[in-house]
Design a protein around this nucleic acid. Structure first.
Length: 785
DNA sequence: GTATTATCTAAGTCT
DNA sequence: TAGATAATAC
């Protein structure tokens, strides 16, 4: 049985998976099956008598954790796999911090501030200090605080560190340390932690409470860390401490794929692992060098790129897969042309190879690049999904409602309070809120405690009455916290806070969309509550359980659902660990990729190069690179040069664009339209069918499914069988000046169109009704004539 | 205290 | 371009 399990692995994989005790490092080239090794190793551990309760497995995303757990369950049975502690650093340590919260004087229900909350707080503090927010840019200040925390430097350490203080004086920000200290104090009083605190405070906990350290050392007798090359100092130290007693630690990673130095990841952690643990007899290093994912062309091209980096662990990634197609390089005239090229190519490959939309990924350096691809894909009715960007949980209305939730669980949550105390409007204005915030700081109270004592600040009768009403409202939610499940209470809060009514009364298209988003969130909560309540009927799943889940969700985590056959659009960072048959790497231009901000140092340039390596090695069958000669950046046209990374690939693996701007072959005759700068020519292609008339378009997108969980909710295209139409679908027909018919408002004329699909908003003048703004995806418009 | 308008400035990657 | 903020009027 034991033997059978590991016999499914190759020699190197098996050797790694079979080691039970002692420290070990697995250097795993891209596509070499490292998740497989982790999965099988854990299954093997359990088969050899290790208690699942004694295993800690740290992954890069929660989704990866979930999948791994599943696969382990498949191998050895779910009863064994379900007790493993498996998750991201942040979610595992959040869990530990909740359990141990009293030791660090935090409430069990502490809130986790996301980056927006954290930057807001920094911004407010800068204002309170009467500092110029052009000198002290909140984002920059926050980043500096963040990197200090990732290096386990407290605000006190920071202020006492003459080097850091000197740097701040040099950069004109001598009071940064003070801001840091105040920021931490405010977090503490709010019962809140930022992302970095989840690591920082865990270190404090393990450092200051030897008994707690011992408890977790004994619990986690076997530790596995995935993506070890992307750990920062705080993570490194936590792992080191936890493993110090049993030294059963297995780290897996690839130095060539280290792409998070900007957030404190230290590539030295993996490079130094051997020095650190080499003293143990059992210490072993395994190298996985056989790539199972990609063609020879892709593997070799990737190798040729990465050889330009100086610092790396020697390894020789190879594959026995086919040679495969050459990597096509495409030169587009503009960013929009690049979008069209990619969409056309996807369309073409689907026709030729029968590929599904989900076989494709479009990878870019920055989120802002997604737009031209969205537009082009939509025109061809190719379904897609964007990962990253403005996620569901960052939308205003969602954050508003969640702020009420947070306040109910933790009334001292300052950021949540500021967000909703006057939303919907209840006559508690900025000046009053300001008084409360300042008062709380001066009297060293939590924001809620101060609120309850508002009269001490001279807040007068009328306003005080309104505040009391607000206090009563929040209290009425609090009493239900442990009694009602997440959905029931969530629903109660949404309606009694007035939020639902507020949004419902807004009949503008945006208002309708916001209302529906709230419904989506509630639907997701229903699913959350039902799923968990059924699993354990004795225990209800509360609102604070839900919040814990939500705070650390990443975009990569949210892709459950029925409707997953879509092209993936994401940053290269977000693509780590994923693979696709067809990959387009776009925007390969100097100053974009590599980013202009990386030109200053070799280290940063090498990180960009590793990023490119990651991008290329996502591809299984075919990779296509593209760049544009001009591109809109910050509203202006800028001229671009091809990225140096294209040149760094051995040209044997490339199919370069023609030098003259005229394709010699007609293999992709749609290219012509780009080279000749004629938009939409391709739409005349003979693949056209009259089905276009029934092709879903912006005007008749089905409403979101009422049972879909919110993690499904992404900006998605109108789903449709992809058939480019000769006559464009109606989204195209609705143009400025068009005469349209609306069910309710009758005949009207389009005055303006703005916004991005699927949120295209039309301003339409209806002679009978006056001027209206309608979202195309909801308004059922018919074009006249 | 609130609503509307005018002006500014920002876009690098993420838990 | 768009979202955030400041200024203005109510």
């Amino acid at each position: 049985m034991v033997h059978d399990l590991l016999s499914q692995l190759n020699d190197a994989q098996r050797a790694a998976a079979a080691q039970i005790n002692g420290p070990m490092m697995v250097i795993a080239g891209a596509g070499s099956g490292k998740t497989r090794v982790l999965t099988f190793r854990i299954a093997h551990l359990i088969q050899n008598g290790v208690d699942p309760f004694n295993i800690l497995s740290l992954t890069f995303t929660n989704k990866a954790a979930k999948e791994m757990k599943h696969r382990i369950g498949d191998l050895i049975g779910e009863t064994h796999s379900k007790d493993i502690w498996m998750g991201t650093f942040h979610s595992i340590f959040a869990r530990i911090l909740r359990i141990e919260s009293e030791h660090i004087n935090y409430p069990r229900n502490f809130t986790i501030y996301d980056t927006a909350d954290a930057k807001n707080l920094v911004k407010d503090i800068i204002k309170e200090f009467n500092l110029d927010d052009k000198t002290y840019k909140p984002g920059i200040v926050y980043n500096r605080i963040s990197s200090a925390k990732n290096n386990l430097i407290s605000s006190q350490d920071y202020i006492n560190n003459s080097d850091l203080m000197a740097e701040d004086r040099m950069s004109g920000k001598p009071r940064l340390g003070e801001i840091f200290a105040q920021y931490d104090l405010r977090l503490f009083k709010a019962g809140a932690m930022d992302f970095d605190d989840l690591l920082f405070k865990t270190n404090v906990l393990l450092r200051d409470f030897p008994s707690i350290l011992l408890k977790y050392q004994e619990k986690f007798q076997y530790i596995l860390v995935d993506e070890y090359q992307d750990t920062n100092f705080a993570q490194y130290l936590i792992v080191k401490q936890l493993a110090a007693r049993h030294a059963n630690i297995c780290v897996v990673g690839d130095d060539a794929q280290s792409i998070y130095a900007f957030r404190g990841a230290n590539i030295q952690n993996i490079l130094n692992f051997q020095k650190e643990y080499g003293i143990y007899d059992e210490f072993s290093i395994y190298k996985l060098e056989q790539n199972y994912r990609s063609t020879k062309t892709i593997v070799n091209a990737a190798n040729s790129i990465i050889s330009n980096n100086k610092e790396q662990i020697k390894k020789d990634v190879w594959t026995s897969n086919d040679e495969g197609d050459k990597i096509k390089v495409h030169k587009a005239a503009t960013d929009n042309d690049e979008g069209q090229f990619v969409a056309n190519q996807i369309f073409y490959l689907r026709q030729q190879n029968g590929a599904a939309p989900s076989d494709f990924a479009i990878l870019y350096r920055t989120n802002a690049q997604s737009r031209s691809f969205e537009e082009a894909l939509r025109k061809l009715n190719i379904p897609y999904r964007i990962y990253g960007g403005l996620s569901f949980y960052q939308r205003k209305e969602i954050k508003d409602l969640i702020s009420y939730f947070r306040l109910a669980c933790n009334p001292n949550d300052e950021e949540a309070m500021k967000r909703v105390i006057n939303y919907p409007k209840r006559g508690i204005g900025d000046t009053t809120v300001q008084k409360i915030v300042v008062g709380a700081t001066e009297k060293n109270l939590g924001i809620w405690d101060m609120l309850e004592r508002s009269p001490e600040l001279g807040i007068n009768g009328a306003t005080w009455n309104k505040i009391q009403e607000f206090i009563t409202l929040i209290k009425s939610f609090r009493v239900a916290l442990d009694v009602r499940n997440a959905y029931d209470l969530g629903h109660q809060i949404a309606s009694e806070s007035g939020l639902l009514k507020e949004l419902y009364s807004d009949r503008t298209p945006e208002g309708v969309a916001r209302y529906e988003n709230i419904q989506e969130l509630l639907n997701g909560m229903k699913e959350f509550s039902d799923r968990l309540d059924d699993a354990n009927p004795l225990q209800i799943h509360t609102l604070s359980d839900f919040l814990i889940d939500v705070a650390l969700l990443t975009d990569a985590d949210q892709d459950k659902g029925e409707d997953n056959d879509r092209v993936s659009l994401m940053t290269i960072h977000a693509s780590k660990g994923l693979e696709f048959p067809y990959v387009n790497i776009v925007g390969l231009e100097e100053n974009l990729f590599p980013s202009q901000l990386s030109l200053n140092s070799r280290e940063e340039m090498e990180e960009e190069r590793r990023l490119f390596y990651v991008a290329l090695t996502r591809a299984e069958k075919k990779a296509t690179l593209s760049y544009a000669l001009t591109r809109y950046r910050w509203g202006q046209i800028s001229h671009c040069e091809p990225s140096r990374f294209i040149e760094e690939i051995d040209e044997r693996f490339l199919e370069m664009p023609e030098e003259t701007q005229r394709p010699s072959s007609t293999r992709f005759d749609q290219e012509r339209s780009h080279f000749f700068g004629v938009n939409n020519r391709f739409s005349q292609k003979p693949t056209t069918s009259p089905a276009a008339a029934s092709a879903p378009s912006a005007r008749n997108e089905p409403p979101p499914s009422p049972i879909a969980p919110p993690r499904n909710f992404k900006k998605v295209s109108t789903s449709a069988p992809a058939i480019p139409s000769g006559e464009y679908s109606s989204a195209e027909e609705i143009i400025v000046g068009a005469e349209v018919m609306h069910d309710k408002f009758g005949k009207g004329k389009v005055i303006a169109l703005d916004g991005q699909a699927p949120d295209v908003k039309a301003t339409i003048f209806f002679p009978k009704e006056g001027q209206k703004q309608l979202l195309l995806r909801f308004a059922k418009l018919k074009v006249m004539g």
